[in-house]
Design a protein around this nucleic acid. Structure first.
Lengths: 193, 193
DNA sequence: TATAAATTAGACCGATTGGTTTATTTTTTT
DNA sequence: AAAAAAATAAACCAATCGGTCTAATTTATA
């Protein structure tokens, strides 16, 4: 039957809160309030705010990694179209969100990537694990002759995802997907064989 | 002769502090300490922390805009090489900094681009003014037949600078320029005519 | 030179921060 | 059923937050 509160629900709430507001802009009390738990429970599950954030990143990162893998596996499209559809899907979700939040790993990397070694390490780990999933699809596209072989699959994956992140950040400020759509068109034009 | 403290010096200190630590991670007291001024002087010059940050962004944005313009004007290289050298220079500076800080506009856009309308507006304004300078050089490159005409100068400028920002963010976490150098190579390969 | 205005200086303020503590309740183990 | 362990609950803590206030000093204006 278990206790009243469970960790995964808190992590899910934490993910939403941190994604939309950032790390230093959010206090523990806000998380307690939104998750509907008392402080005692929070500090029973998590050592500190930093530990909490690290676990949120890990939780989100792993979920996202599985989601991407599933998406690529189920899709019947060719590799290059799988990738393009994937990015289009992310943009659609963000648009529905009215551009609130964006990607937790992207935002948090920018906010504390240089000031907090523990979180930076976790953020990079998750990013790299996504990259591997993307690189696998890129590699298949290269084998099929769809994607340029001038650069390695991992180099192209980094290029794709870092570029995507940059444009994603711009979307936060402009609150418009116009340049994001152009980015998609240009990038997938550039990387084709 | 003037009073003891002057606003530009405070803005310069503020720029360094905000760039390295972010917005919400920095308190007024830290700025007072690093700038060596009492609180009374700060609130004599600035209405609030938010107003201060806005002025720092404006100050940095304009300085940077002028610097870029000067750089492009003095350089004897062709447009595409001007752009590449410009980005390489930025990376070199960041490397010398041991990847602390990065670009204030990039970092701050990510941190508060969606939560603070006043700052978001200023950040976007500065970004767009840089973009115009870059687009002018891109346009010259297109005229000379060096750069692809498949996309407009401003589209290419957005593509360049947003992509650069994304990779710049990654550099904060990885603390290495490896993928940044690859990004440079790939991007300037992609956009050539 | 007298007066007004701007700047400097830092003590002070209520609110909030991340985190601790203590007591109670619930679940698990014996 | 008894004892140990885990989880819940919220009052409490020192430190810090952004910001205000009053007084002293310095500069500009009349």
């Amino acid at each position: 039957m278990g206790y009243k509160h469970n960790k995964e629900e808190i992590l899910e709430t934490g993910y939403q809160v941190l994604r939309k507001n950032g790390y230093h802009n959010v206090g523990i009390n806000q998380i307690l309030k939104e998750a509907g738990i008392p402080k005692g429970s929070f500090y029973n599950f998590f050592e500190s705010k930093e530990d909490f954030a690290r676990q949120v990143v890990e939780f989100y990162g792993c979920n996202n990694s599985n989601w991407i893998e599933g998406l690529f596996k189920e899709s019947k499209e060719t590799p290059i179209n799988k990738l393009k559809s994937f990015y289009q899907l992310l943009v659609n979700y963000n648009e529905q969100d009215n551009y609130e939040g964006g990607c937790l790993v992207n935002s948090m990397s920018n906010e504390i990537g240089r000031n907090n070694d523990l979180l930076a390490k976790e953020l990079n780990q998750q990013f790299v694990s996504w990259l591997q999933v993307i690189a696998d699809v890129v590699a298949k596209g290269q084998e099929m002759g769809e994607i340029t072989k001038e650069y390695s699959a991992i180099e192209l994956a980094e290029y794709l995802h870092a570029g995507f992140f940059g444009t994603f950040s711009r979307m936060k400020v402009t609150r418009s997907r116009v340049y994001m759509d152009i980015w998609l068109e240009m990038t997938f034009d550039f990387i084709k064989a």
